[in-house]
């Protein structure tokens, strides 16, 4: 199915490297920036280099995921969610997937609560980072580790 074997991951890596090389030669700045994205650079582009505090946000994921194809994820940010004080965005970043982007959730005062759930793919055991941007311009983060047991399906 959608699982990656070690061999495929390596193959992807090689292909990605080849792509980067080609792109670098053809000097397309957009594609180059895209290829260089790391969890750190993604976090920095989200926060604009501002300080990120711990807390206020909780991220719930299973400790062990048997199937990395669909891992439940839910988060909640402490906030009154009024017009003057609400959560603007929450970004989910993966430290171990081929690409660090998972999703960005955009809230509004209409949301009532800054909480959401979804399901994500995990290529391997790794940390998942959730960062919330509040309407007052502050950032709050949390991190959780999920162990992935790669199942015997496909690959």
């Amino acid at each position: 199915m959608n699982k990656f074997t070690r061999r495929e991951v390596l193959a992807i890596g090689t292909t990605a490297f080849a792509t980067v090389a080609t792109v670098a030669l053809s000097s397309s700045p957009f594609a180059l920036a895209e290829a260089k994205k790391t969890p750190k650079s993604l976090l920095e582009s989200f926060t604009g280099g501002k300080q990120v505090n711990e807390g206020k946000i909780t991220l719930e994921m299973p400790e062990i995921a048997e199937n990395g194809n669909t891992v439940p994820l839910s988060f909640k940010v402490e906030s009154p969610m009024t017009k003057d004080d609400y959560v603007k965005r929450v970004i989910i970043i993966s430290e171990g997937n081929p690409r660090p982007d998972v999703a960005t959730f955009n809230f509004s005062p209409l949301s009532g609560e800054a909480a959401a759930s979804s399901r994500m793919r995990l290529a391997k055991t790794q940390n998942i980072i959730a960062v919330a941007e509040l309407s007052d311009g502050t950032f709050h983060m949390t991190k959780t580790e999920v162990k992935v047991t790669i199942g015997g399906c496909g690959g």
């Binding site: 998972v102 999703a103 960005t104 959730f105 955009n106 979804s118 399901r119």
Partner: peptide
């Protein structure tokens, strides 16, 4: 009310 920008890591 609510929106999400998804990437390929969403199942």
């Amino acid at each position: 009310v609510f929106s999400v920008n998804l990437d390929a890591a969403i199942s």
